[in-house]
Design a protein around this nucleic acid. Sequence first.
DNA 1: CGTAATTTTGACTCCGCTCAATTGGCGTGG
DNA 2: CCACGCCAATTGAGCGGAGTCAAAATTACG
Lengths: 256, 256
Amino acid sequence: MPAVIALKPVVKPIFTPMNQTNAKFEVTCGSCNLRELCLPGGVGAEDLDRVENIVYARKRVRRGEALFGVGDEFRTVYAIRSGFFKMSLVDGDGREQVTGFFMGGELLGMDGLGSGRYNGTAIALEDSEVCVMPYALIEQMAREVPSLQRHLHAVLAREIVRDHGVMMLLGSMRAEERLAAFLINLSKRFVRRGYSASDFHLRMTRDEIGSYLGLKLETVSRLFSQFQKDALIEVEQKHVRILDIDGLERLLHARN
Amino acid sequence: MPAVIALKPVVKPIFTPMNQTNAKFEVTCGSCNLRELCLPGGVGAEDLDRVENIVYARKRVRRGEALFGVGDEFRTVYAIRSGFFKMSLVDGDGREQVTGFFMGGELLGMDGLGSGRYNGTAIALEDSEVCVMPYALIEQMAREVPSLQRHLHAVLAREIVRDHGVMMLLGSMRAEERLAAFLINLSKRFVRRGYSASDFHLRMTRDEIGSYLGLKLETVSRLFSQFQKDALIEVEQKHVRILDIDGLERLLHARN
DNA sequence: CGTAATTTTGACTCCGCTCAATTGGCGTGG
DNA sequence: CCACGCCAATTGAGCGGAGTCAAAATTACG
């Protein structure tokens, strides 16, 4: 604890609270129901009170707003407390690529760590709240708490593994397989957070889904219609109900 | 130093030298010309002699052999001392996806860190030599040497950024743009290692290039032929000479 | 309540895939 | 050393899946 307190002054002046009430937190990591999914994942109770001090502030991000943008100086990592985000890249020619969708307990901004600047833009797809964790504090704490260090590495590695999965999806699946994989993935992640596995609200547009899956929005829309015709799902705008998850799985694993 | 020595016995029994002479290293990190690209990248001279102890052994891998395979227990990270590797994934249906090609100074195996098992297979595309670095040692040393910790994180983050680049490539580029991007990327990496930017030997097959780029081998072959017809490159089997790098760049950034 | 944004659907096109045949390299063994 | 066989690469012909362009329908939002 003392070491952390000692470090804070160094970091503090940099982080001027941007727009919101963040002084005292109603919820600490210890009582946060997303803890297991989040950065303090593998940290035992004995170290948790120290690790909690990593959370420097809370920040609200309104739907449509950017949490950070490409090229912004990297200083902090964000944990999603509530809400939903997309991460995207734009190359020199204005081409957008959505690299992922993120929900409660997941971490944003770690890719900035390589170059000192965020490599992509994080945009809230609904009103959200994040925990602000200065990287300097994480670094410091990771040295002192091995379980945190281990978990931090695991989180980074898991992001790499996830990306490889997306590469496989983009590199070797057909359009309908991609959408099936996408729906199954969303379903699983909702379940882990206590929501329905079969009934959920898409927070992103067809265009954003298409960008993520390497398809055009028209193709995504057609596939939704076709899945509905095949009694795999029910879609009404952004509301999706999965009727036949096994059917989706079969579609996904169908050789050819 | 004492701490490291103390740790070694714990780890040692696990790592029985597999097939090669690895007792004494002719080359240490300090005198390795790939150091800047490698794990000890940002580590100053004062800490280098300690960090060097991370390299537990050297290992030779013959062309075609696997350095590790999917599902193998994760214990070590490998740094490529010489040679060339491909990393690939196979999903349940036998579908292969090449997730990357790796050369001198680059790290292999870090994705295993998330789950305790390697997530993909690393196969040597030419006779190669790697430095074997037990993760337990890296972890330990990262706690003691902040510059190593920082660099380790940076390396992980850069892999994520790289993967996002590939996602953009797969998700929103046309075939010829993909191949142009691929050639430009290879060229840059060869240059950093002191090889020719314009004249190199592809160590992978058309099929492997295709897998990486989300294309079929026939398409890759046709594109090589077309690039040659357009006087952008000269190809003869695995030998490539870039004649017009600007032309390739233009092709890459041509909107539509 | 009106305007903009998103989604759906249709018709047509074209890029990259499939299938197939041929050529070329390279290592192995007679 | 050459012939054989195997694997990699090239090239062609034809096809089909996803993209493009366009218009209409529905919804979201100020």
